[in-house]
């Protein structure tokens, strides 16, 4: 009894940490989202819903939709690129399996911002790729790559694909390889076996990876800021601008709260699915 009471104390540092540095700021954001800006551009607490009305006005709805659209495309691309990679490493990597996983993870030791700058160097009009194709005479003028949705989504895929590959890898590695053989033994062609056996068996990894990529991608501002232009403006940029450029903290807070609620709905759906299916929650 005393021993367990002793160990109970260990919960307080963590609880305090979360209360001070997570719950309190969150509450401040929530409170500020109902406030307004005074004449000097400072946020003032109050109670009004105008900020929330602004979030859903015609100027910003396309930004929200674009963010969700980019995030969905990013998830699909990550899945398309990540699944074969994870499958190959987990099933055929043999003794090089861990080395291959490490090779995938190591680039992510480099800060996301720095990696995105590297993409700027690659894709810019005077960048590596354009210089190369112009010098080789493939085109007369550089091809517009930067400031396009292609560059922003590419940057997002590059930035977050590891969060797709790792859960997929775990899921595929845990799968009993003999169920794939059983699928073929029961007259499934390789394609049918993949659809009816492998995909369902690795569904927990697909779900976990999709959520882990989708959540940070929707709110991302780095990729759109460095690789995009006005036409690729995402909600993350919008929020950032409210806090740093426009100095409209109450509106930025309202945007943040709406985003969080939107993401929380997905998170809850995922958790319910994952716990019901006894899937691993990553």
């Amino acid at each position: 009894m005393n021993a367990s009471r002793f160990w109970n104390w260990f919960v307080y540092p963590g609880a305090l940490w979360i209360a001070l540095l997570f719950a309190v700021p969150l509450f401040l954001v929530l409170a500020l989202s109902f406030g307004h800006v005074d004449d000097l551009g400072r946020g003032v607490y109050g109670f009004q819903l105008t900020n929330y009305a602004d979030v859903f006005n015609a100027t910003y709805v396309p930004v929200l939709l674009r963010s969700v659209g980019y995030a969905l495309i990013t998830v699909i691309l990550c899945l398309g690129i990540g699944y074969p990679a994870a499958y190959f490493i987990a099933r055929f990597g043999g003794k090089y399996r861990y080395a291959l996983v490490a090779a995938l993870v190591i680039p992510f030791f480099v800060n996301y911002l720095v990696r995105t700058y590297a993409w700027v160097a690659l894709l810019a009009d005077e960048g590596l790729i354009n210089n190369a194709i112009v010098d080789l005479g493939l085109t007369q003028a550089p091809i517009q790559m930067i400031n396009t949705p292609f560059a922003v989504i590419g940057g997002l895929v590059y930035g977050y694909i590891i969060f797709m590959i790792l859960p997929l890898y775990v899921s595929i590695e845990r799968m009993d390889p003999s169920i794939v053989e059983a699928g073929k033994d029961l007259y499934g062609s390789p394609f049918q076996t993949f659809i009816h056996v492998t995909l369902p068996a690795t569904q927990p990894g697909i779900l976990a990876g999709s959520v882990l990529v989708f959540l940070p991608t929707v709110g991302d501002f780095v990729s759109a800021q460095l690789l995009g232009g006005p036409d690729t403006y995402m909600v993350g940029n919008l929020i950032q601008d409210q806090f740093f450029a426009a100095s409209d903290w109450p509106f930025g807070s309202a945007l943040t709260v709406v985003m969080m609620l939107f993401l929380a709905v997905w998170m809850v759906l995922y958790l319910r699915r994952a716990t019901r299916g006894e899937a691993e929650v990553l």
């Binding site: 053989e181 033994d185 062609s189 068996a201």
Partner: peptide, 28 residues
């Protein structure tokens, strides 16, 4: 294997966990 008229009972059983018993049996 999928074109051979033989079937196998695996040592690990290799049942499909996402399907119930009757769907496992109906798979082939």
């Amino acid at each position: 294997p999928h074109k051979r008229n033989v079937n196998m009972v695996f040592q690990s059983y290799a049942l499909f966990d996402h399907l119930d018993v009757q769907d496992n049996i109906a798979f082939g």
